[in-house]
Nucleic acid binder design. Structure first.
Lengths: 144, 144
DNA sequence: CCTTTATAGTTTCATATGAAACTATTTGCA
DNA sequence: TGCAAATAGTTTCATATGAAACTATAAAGG
């Protein structure tokens, strides 16, 4: 009789993180997805453009941890809807110079508080001590 | 001059969880994906069948937090490759009765240690105190 | 120079995914 | 009974995604 030692999926850390992350992302996405016709990838691109003002597509990819194909597609949508302004870099015609338009800022200023509220709601389930441990743990687990 | 208060994406909890979860899942998946020609969804199905011996497709969906379409497709693959045996429930012809075949168990017994090793490697970045806080925090954040 | 190599970004193609429609069967209840 | 509603599971369709090929431009080296 062999010993199979099955994995307890519901205790398995990678699995739990995956479930948690998906649950949260879906909850947030539902809030703005339809309301602003904005995908998660598009929102991430807008968030970094809000933060850094002007970036190239490659820089957006770096800062969002998305691959360049995803960024390219998100940008196509954002430029088409007039939320992002794309110009050509003066000294390098390969590069784009990206920034939020006025309407892009308007969307950003509406969505950012929603996102923050979701985060607060999530953290509210933890006490202050747990919150600070979580911070520390994520720093350690997330590759530099 | 308006105040835009841009989101710091790299500090934003849902974003960090999403990055962390994807990084980990991809690392694990790479290990067995090609080597055993096994997708993540297929592996999850196998893991719960290893744990509970016989389940219906709906029960598999519940226990893996996957939707029934994903389960149906994973099972189609697993049955086709002879890793899962599907029979019909005696008293209810709608239900399937699923269990791992001998070759399914063989795969399971090879993959489970790999998965566990990945988890250990991940947890090794944390000290014992942090590990126990993480446990507690995940319990609180994960909806019952 | 000018040719090779690297970089920025887009397009293509093959696969993954979820929602909704669908089939088959069972359950609830008038 | 017998018919409406619920349940198990599959298929369809529309969209999302990543890898690799591709285009255009810039940098590097002989």
């Amino acid at each position: 009789m062999s010993e199979h030692a099955p994995l307890e999926l519901e205790r398995f850390l990678p699995y739990r993180l995956s479930i948690l992350s998906n649950t949260i992302s879906q909850a947030i996405a539902r809030e703005y997805q339809q309301r602003f016709d904005l995908s998660v990838t598009e929102w991430r691109v807008m968030a970094v453009l809000a933060r850094f003002d002007t970036l190239s597509a490659r820089e957006v990819a770096e800062r969002t941890a998305m691959d360049k194909v995803a960024v390219s597609r998100a940008l196509a949508g954002l430029v088409a809807s007039g939320r992002v302004i794309r110009r050509m870099h003066a000294g390098d015609k390969r590069r784009s110079v990206l920034r939020l338009s006025a309407s892009g800022w308007k969307i950003h200023d509406a969505v950012a508080p929603l996102a923050r509220a979701q985060e607060r709601k999530l953290l509210a389930r933890l006490n202050v001590e747990e919150q600070s441990w979580l911070e520390q743990i994520l720093d350690k687990l997330t590759p530099a």
